[in-house]
Amino acid sequence: SDIKVHVGDITVELHNVSEEFARLVEEALRLGLNEEQAKEWAHKALH
């Protein structure tokens, strides 16, 4: 599904992702990663 993740003043739109993936992206953003890094990190975490 499509999910918007908000962290501080950052909003990341995720398309066709699981809630778990979105949660991992949100966690990575909170750790200070940028959007691209957060998506990559979440992807690796799920595989």
Score class of each variant (00 low, 15 high):
Leu29Pro: 00
Leu46Cys: 03
Asp9Ile: 09
Leu33Met: 15
Val17His: 08
Lys39Phe: 11
Asp2Phe: 13
Lys4Leu: 12
Ser1Trp: 04
His47Trp: 05
Ile10Met: 11
Ala42Met: 01
Ala38Val: 01
His47Thr: 12
Gly32Asp: 02
Ser18His: 07
Leu31Ser: 11
Glu40Trp: 14
His6Gln: 15
Glu40Ile: 09
Leu29Met: 09
Ala28Asn: 02
Lys44Gln: 14
Ala28Ile: 01
Leu33Phe: 11
Gly8Gln: 06
Asp9Trp: 03
Glu13Ala: 09
Ala28Lys: 01
Gly8Met: 03
Asp2Glu: 11
Gly8His: 08
Ala22Val: 08
Trp41Arg: 04
His6Gly: 09
Arg30Trp: 12
Ala22Arg: 08
Gly32Lys: 02
Glu35Asp: 06
Glu26Thr: 12
Ala28Thr: 00
His43Val: 10
His15Asp: 06
Gly8Ser: 06
Glu36Ser: 11
Leu31Met: 14
Ile10Asn: 07
Leu29Lys: 03
Ala45Met: 15
Glu26Lys: 12
Leu14Tyr: 02
Gly32Arg: 01
Ile3Tyr: 13
His6Met: 10
Glu35Ala: 13
Asp9Ala: 13
Val17Glu: 07
Glu20Arg: 14
Glu40Pro: 00
Leu14Arg: 04
Ala28Asp: 00
Val17Ile: 08
Val25Ile: 09
Glu35Phe: 14
Ile10His: 09
Val12Glu: 04
Arg23Tyr: 07
Asn16Gln: 10
Gln37Pro: 01
Asp2Leu: 14
Val25Gly: 00
Gln37Ile: 02
Ala42His: 00
Asp9Arg: 04
Glu26His: 10
His47Lys: 13
Lys39Asn: 03
Leu46Ile: 12
Ser18Tyr: 05
Glu13Tyr: 03
Glu20Phe: 15
Gly32Ile: 00
Lys44Ser: 12
Trp41His: 04
Ala28Gly: 12
Glu19Phe: 14
Glu20Tyr: 14
Gln37Ser: 08
Gln37Glu: 13
Glu36Asn: 10
Lys4Gln: 12
Asp2Cys: 05
Lys44Tyr: 13
Ile10Trp: 07
Thr11Phe: 10
Glu13Val: 15
Lys39Pro: 01
His15Ile: 12
Ala28Val: 01
Gln37Thr: 05
Asp2Ser: 13
Asn34Tyr: 03
Glu26Leu: 14
Ser1Thr: 14
Val17Asn: 04
Leu24Gln: 03
Val12Tyr: 01
Glu13Ile: 15
Val25Asp: 00
Leu14Asp: 05
Asn16Ala: 08
Leu14Ser: 04
Ser18Cys: 04
Leu14Pro: 05
Asp2Pro: 13
Gly32Thr: 01
Ala28Trp: 02
Ala22Phe: 07
Glu40Thr: 08
Val12Gly: 05
Val25Gln: 01
Val12Cys: 03
Glu20Gln: 14
Ala42Thr: 01
Ile3Gln: 09
Leu29Thr: 02
Thr11Leu: 11
Arg23His: 08
Leu31Cys: 09
Leu24Phe: 11
Lys44Arg: 14
Ala45Glu: 11
Glu35Cys: 06
Val12Asp: 05
Val17Gly: 04
Ala22Cys: 03
Ala22Ser: 07
Glu40Tyr: 15
Val17Cys: 06
Leu33Asn: 02
His47Phe: 07
Leu46His: 05
Glu19Arg: 12
Arg30Leu: 13
Glu40Gly: 03
Leu29Tyr: 03
Lys4Trp: 04
His6Ile: 15
Glu19Tyr: 13
